[in-house]
Design a protein around this nucleic acid. Structure first.
Lengths: 119, 119
DNA sequence: CAGAATCCCCTCAGATACTG
DNA sequence: CAGTATCTGAGGGGATTCTG
C-alpha cells in the first residue's frame, strides 16, 4: 500500500493537532527539555489526555525522550527532544516560513508567540 | 485558540492521508500538471472520492489550480501546482530526507518510486 | 472521464472525573 | 505532579453505486 510511504507515515503523526506545537515547546525549553505541566501550561487549550498521547507517540517515533526523576514526590518527568526531533524543528520552521509567505491573511499566528518563537 | 496558528492549520490538511502524495504526483507531471485519472492511476489504493476531496481542498488553499478543458467529450480536467504548491514540494523533500535519515528501517518506501521520484 | 451520493466504520480530540 | 479512564460528538476515509 502507498500508505507505507515514509512521507505519508511521517506526516500522519506530525499532522495531528498539537504535535508540532508540542515539539516547538520542547525546543524552547532549556536543553530542549520541558516537564509535562510546563508544556501543558504553555499550550492553552490542550488537555492532559491529548498531551500524554502525543508525547507517547513522539517517544515511540524517537523524536522525544522521557526521563522520570527517581524518588521525587511528587513525581517529575521530563521530555527532551532527541537529535531527530531537533532536526525536524528545521522542517517546522520551513513550514512556518511557507505559511507566513502564502497565508499572511492569517494574522492570528503573528499575534501569538508563534512568530517570535522560532523564526 | 492555539489552533489558529498557521503551522498547525497548514499541517492539518497537509497531514491528511494522500495529500502529499498527490502534490508529488502533480509535481512529476509535465508542467506540474496531471489529469484526474492520471493521478488516480498512479496512486494505487486511492478512491475517487478522496482524490476529489483532496484536490478541492488544495485548490481552496491555493496550492493547486484546476482547469477544465472546454467542449471536450468526455470531459477532461487538469490540475496544476501553483507557485505556492511548487514551494511546498521543497518542504516535502525535506520531510522525506528526514524520514529516510531517521526511519531507514522503513524499506517499503525505498522499494517504491517514492525514493526515486523527488530526491 | 471526472466526479458526486450514500453507507458505514474508525480515529481524533474535547470534557470530565479519578489516581499513585 | 503526571498522568489514566470513560464518554461523546465530529470528521476522516474506504467501498460501492450512480451520472452528466
Amino acid at each position: 500500500m502507498q500508505d507505507e510511504c515514509t512521507v505519508n507515515q511521517t506526516v500522519r503523526y506530525l499532522g495531528k493537532k498539537w504535535t508540532l506545537l508540542i515539539i516547538l515547546e520542547l525546543y524552547k525549553g532549556e536543553g530542549y527539555t520541558r516537564r509535562f505541566t510546563e508544556v501543558k501550561d504553555r499550550l492553552p487549550g490542550i488537555t492532559a489526555k491529548v498531551l500524554s498521547a502525543r508525547l507517547k507517540e513522539l517517544e515511540e517515533e524517537g523524536l522525544v525522550e522521557r526521563r522520570v526523576e527517581a524518588g521525587t514526590v511528587p513525581v517529575r518527568s521530563e521530555y527532551t527532544l532527541t537529535e531527530s526531533g531537533l532536526e525536524i524543528v528545521e522542517v517546522i520552521k520551513d513550514i512556518k516560513r511557507w505559511a507566513l509567505r502564502w497565508k499572511i491573511e492569517n494574522l492570528a499566528c503573528g499575534a501569538q508567540d508563534c512568530r517570535r518563537c522560532v523564526l
